[in-house]
Every structure is written in structure tokens, then in C-alpha cells.
């Protein structure tokens, strides 16, 4: 139930954000649409922890996202230097790693974070194993060091 209420709130906020016109009719229509969409989603059984993960508190997000942004900046700059280097010093490498996350949300966050960081891309994602393509050998070692794995696990565990 709490997921339904929060989903209605999020959808209604999304409507208000996109509309920009706050006449009584449009606001009421937005509320009606939000309730209707969540009612349909409940019939489809997709309103749950996975579809709408509010149990991941803001604390988790505010600890994890700034770290991820810093990683993206660092590796993005590295990839930029490689692209602009006339010798193109790439050493593409495939690595396998074992993610420590238990939930699907955690695994998806981990895989998406790997892909979002320039220089590493998750190719295959399973419960026990990721296959990661790295642009350079150094990038592959960075993935293997497991720092992202630890941080995503902490993110997943926080309530």
C-alpha cells in the first residue's frame, strides 16, 4: 500500500512538473491520471519493492551518487586523453567478476554503474557473474579491485 501511495505522489509530481499550468481542472485531471495509472499497475502486480524502490533511502543515494559522479569524471577524462592521443593507446580487456549484491536492484545498479563509467561496459549480467569489457588494462584492474562492488553493496543494504 505504501508503494502505491508513493507511486501516486511521484506520478502526480511528474505531471505538475511537465504541465506548468495550474488550473483546477488540469490539476484534478493529473491526480485522476496518477491514480488510474497506479490502479492499472496494481492489477498488473508491478507495484512492488523492485518497480518502485523507495526503501532505498535518500541517505544511500546521497552517499553513492556523488562518489559515482567523481568516478565518471575521472575515467571520462582518462578516456578523453586516450581518444585525443595520436597513438591511441588502448588495450581492450575482458574481465569476469563476482558481484556481491543479493537483490536485483543492487545488481542492476552495479551493472549500470559499470556501464555508465566511461572505459568499462558490462556485457553479460548474471546473478553470480558479470562479464566486463574494459578499454584499457588499467581500467580492468580498477573493476577487479572491487571498490564499486563494496560501495553498491553498502548502498543496497542501507534503509
Amino acid at each position: 500500500m505504501i508503494y502505491s501511495v508513493s507511486a501516486v505522489g511521484a506520478l502526480f509530481a511528474f505531471w505538475l512538473l511537465l504541465s506548468g499550468h495550474y488550473t483546477p481542472f488540469l490539476v484534478a485531471a493529473g491526480l485522476g491520471c496518477a491514480v488510474a495509472v497506479v490502479a492499472l499497475a496494481r492489477r498488473m502486480n508491478v507495484v512492488d519493492r523492485e518497480g518502485h524502490p523507495i526503501h532505498l533511502g535518500p541517505r544511500a543515494l546521497f552517499a553513492y551518487w556523488p562518489w559515482l559522479a567523481r568516478e565518471i569524471l575521472k575515467s571520462g577524462w582518462d578516456v578523453t586523453r586516450i581518444i585525443l592521443d595520436p597513438r591511441l593507446p588502448v588495450s581492450p580487456t575482458l574481465v569476469r567478476l563476482r558481484p556481491g549484491q543479493k537483490t536485483d536492484v543492487g545488481l542492476a545498479t552495479h551493472a549500470n554503474s559499470i556501464t555508465l563509467t566511461p572505459g568499462t561496459i558490462s556485457i553479460e549480467v548474471g546473478k553470480g557473474e558479470f562479464l566486463v569489457h574494459a578499454l584499457t588494462r588499467a581500467g580492468a584492474q580498477g573493476v577487479e579491485s572491487g571498490e564499486m562492488d563494496r560501495r553498491v553493496s553498502r548502498f543496497e543494504a542501507e534503509r
Partner: peptide
């Protein structure tokens, strides 16, 4: 090439 494209997408 995908690594290069992700520079455009993120940074």
C-alpha cells in the same frame, strides 16, 4: 567505440 560514445553520454 562504445567506450567513446559513453563519454558523450555522460560527460
Amino acid at each position: 567505440r562504445m567506450h567513446a560514445a559513453s563519454v558523450t553520454d555522460t560527460l
